[in-house]
Simulated scan of single mutants.
Amino acid sequence: MAEKPKVYYFAGRGKMETVRWILAAAGVEFEEEFIETREQYEKLLKEGALLFQQLPMVYIDGMKMVQRKAIMRYVASKHNMYGKNLKERALIDMYVEGTSDLLDIILIHPFLTPDDKRKHIEIIEQKATNRYFPVYEKVLRDHGQPFLVGNQFSWADVQLMEAILMVEEKCPAILFAFPQIKAFKERISKIPTIKAFLQPGSKQKPLPDDKFVKTVQTVLQMYYTMSLN
């Protein structure tokens, strides 16, 4: 029996959550080791486990993989979620890169000051409404298929589903203006692996709290507060 992949990260979302999504979507059971102290992080560094001295890291198929998109691309390729040909893979990459840009905007939110957090929600809503969601609304309408690319579930669908839910947490009414995306969300949420990941008790992580932020800052020795300016 093959060894389960093991993910190394903090006990929260951050840059690992999108990796958890793709593993779960592919039906891959995985274990987690939560990094809670500076000593754990330094041990991984000394062992040479972190190629660029960065988390997240996933031990999978005998490899210590870093860089989240490389990890996700590997999982997607292995589990038939990366298109049927070169053109489809190019489209998937393009959509994933765009969605990742939106996710990265949301990623910094827990690390902002209270005043900046209020401003940041407006930025998230503006970016999603004016730049990112209109693209996917048009893609879904023009493509006329249940999925973004071709006629099968792909890595691009997983990323968009994650982004939709994360934006909705900050802007609950945002999908009123995007009926195609709303219908997409309803379809994707019924896929068995996605449905399971959205249930209580799964490895999906909740909204980051103060404890998560403090742990990240302590482990990575972040001696500054992030600002929108």
Score class of each variant (00 low, 15 high):
residue 1 M to A: 13
residue 4 K to L: 09
residue 4 K to M: 08
residue 6 K to A: 01
residue 8 Y to R: 03
residue 9 Y to P: 05
residue 10 F to P: 06
residue 12 G to V: 04
residue 16 M to W: 02
residue 19 V to P: 04
residue 20 R to V: 01
residue 20 R to H: 06
residue 20 R to Y: 07
residue 26 A to R: 09
residue 26 A to L: 10
residue 27 G to D: 06
residue 28 V to F: 08
residue 29 E to A: 13
residue 30 F to D: 05
residue 33 E to F: 11
residue 35 I to L: 08
residue 36 E to W: 14
residue 36 E to F: 14
residue 37 T to I: 07
residue 39 E to I: 12
residue 40 Q to A: 05
residue 41 Y to T: 02
residue 43 K to H: 13
residue 45 L to H: 07
residue 47 E to S: 11
residue 51 L to C: 08
residue 52 F to Y: 14
residue 54 Q to S: 08
residue 55 L to W: 00
residue 57 M to W: 05
residue 61 D to A: 12
residue 61 D to N: 12
residue 62 G to E: 03
residue 63 M to R: 13
residue 64 K to R: 15
residue 68 R to H: 06
residue 69 K to T: 09
residue 72 M to D: 11
residue 72 M to T: 03
residue 73 R to I: 03
residue 73 R to A: 09
residue 73 R to Q: 10
residue 74 Y to N: 09
residue 76 A to T: 01
residue 77 S to M: 13
residue 81 M to C: 03
residue 82 Y to H: 12
residue 82 Y to G: 05
residue 83 G to L: 14
residue 83 G to R: 11
residue 85 N to F: 11
residue 85 N to M: 10
residue 85 N to D: 15
residue 89 R to L: 15
residue 91 L to T: 14
residue 91 L to N: 15
residue 92 I to L: 08
residue 92 I to D: 15
residue 94 M to W: 14
residue 94 M to A: 15
residue 94 M to I: 10
residue 96 V to H: 08
residue 97 E to N: 12
residue 103 L to A: 02
residue 106 I to E: 01
residue 109 H to T: 08
residue 109 H to R: 07
residue 110 P to E: 05
residue 111 F to T: 06
residue 112 L to F: 03
residue 112 L to N: 05
residue 113 T to H: 07
residue 116 D to E: 10
residue 117 K to F: 00
residue 118 R to Q: 14
residue 125 E to S: 14
residue 128 A to Y: 03
residue 131 R to S: 13
residue 133 F to G: 08
residue 133 F to K: 13
residue 143 H to D: 05
residue 143 H to N: 09
residue 146 P to C: 07
residue 154 S to R: 07
residue 155 W to E: 09
residue 157 D to V: 02
residue 157 D to G: 06
residue 160 L to Q: 07
residue 161 M to E: 09
residue 164 I to E: 12
residue 164 I to P: 08
residue 167 V to L: 06
residue 168 E to W: 02
residue 168 E to D: 02
residue 168 E to G: 03
residue 169 E to G: 15
residue 169 E to P: 13
residue 170 K to D: 06
residue 170 K to V: 05
residue 172 P to F: 01
residue 175 L to T: 03
residue 175 L to S: 02
residue 180 Q to F: 08
residue 180 Q to P: 11
residue 181 I to L: 14
residue 182 K to I: 00
residue 183 A to F: 04
residue 184 F to N: 06
residue 184 F to C: 00
residue 185 K to Y: 13
residue 187 R to C: 06
residue 188 I to M: 04
residue 189 S to H: 12
residue 190 K to M: 10
residue 191 I to C: 09
residue 191 I to P: 11
residue 193 T to P: 10
residue 195 K to F: 05
residue 195 K to A: 12
residue 195 K to G: 05
residue 197 F to T: 06
residue 197 F to E: 04
residue 199 Q to R: 13
residue 201 G to W: 04
residue 204 Q to K: 15
residue 206 P to K: 10
residue 207 L to G: 11
residue 207 L to A: 15
residue 209 D to L: 10
residue 211 K to W: 00
residue 214 K to P: 06
residue 216 V to E: 00
residue 216 V to N: 01
residue 217 Q to H: 12
residue 219 V to G: 00
residue 220 L to Y: 03
residue 220 L to G: 01
residue 220 L to T: 00
residue 221 Q to P: 08
residue 222 M to P: 14
residue 223 Y to E: 06
residue 224 Y to G: 11
